[in-house]
Amino acid sequence: MTVYLPIAELSVNILIILGMGAAVGFLSGMFGVGGGFLITPLLIFYNIPPVVAVATGANQVVASSISGAITHFRRGTIDIKLGTVLLCGGLVGATLGVWLFSLLRRVGQLDLVISLLYVVLLGSVGGLMLWESIGAMRKAAKNQSTPLRRPGQHNWIHGLPLKMRFKKSKIYLSVIPVATLGFCIGILTSVMGVGGGFIMVPAMIYLLRIPTSVVVGTSLFQIVFVSAYTVIVQASTNYTVDIVLAFVLMIAGVIGAQYGVRVGQRLRGEQLRALLALLVLAVGIRLAIELIIPPKDIYSVVSAGFGF
């Protein structure tokens, strides 16, 4: 059963797309991540043009993050003030990112940059997570407690000016690192089609020392708005958001996520993190191989009218 994707301009098997969406949705529900970093590479593996995969991935992130964001909002675990500062940086970053995206696409280096960014980010984040979770599993085996965060410790970030009081997070922090983090994530959202939670959450916990209780909700708050903004900007500058592809993915994704959450609750934290780390590494390695092996055809033709 095929469906024609009007923006990607190719016919795909709808069952494969549904399966992809459901599998990523399941994993994202299980691990509590947005899934953008999985869906975009998977779409690229399935020969969806990377320009479409990235913009459409951002759309899928909106769907998979919104319900989480609403839940956290109801529970009151979002620091709106902190989230707004992150968001300000994020919107600027996403704007710059879309501009970069168009520029790279014009000079024909977009696919390469997307793949390289994925390899570097997935490789390093996956590696760090695996290392951390294996350490935690070892300690758990020896019945030692593992403090994720050492409270009271400060680093150079806390000496920066322009400090602001974030009541909900109970911290007094400079807006510079917060907005910078948002900015970087914004660039990643528009260039890679990811929400960026897998980088933002650890950065907020380890670098900014924001209490874990508000970290996930606040990062989801930023992700929903930045990815929604990215979708609109991508749609209006690059015309690369494929609404048919996005819709099929998100329908399968949100259903898959519900089951993923149930499975995730049965697994232990460090096991979950180790599994996620392996998954992240696997996707990164797959993309790295793609860059290294000789391509089928060293030439490619791009027509001005469509521009893939």
């Binding site: 759309n59 919104i66 929604a228 015309y239 958001v241 998100m250 949100v254």
Partner: peptide, 20 residues
């Protein structure tokens, strides 16, 4: 394109929220 983008986002919001 702007309306198209807004519709795409709206679709995502409805899908995500609706499912939850």
């Amino acid at each position: 394109p702007v309306i198209y983008g807004l519709v795409a986002v709206l679709l995502a919001v409805i899908t995500g929220w609706g499912a939850s």
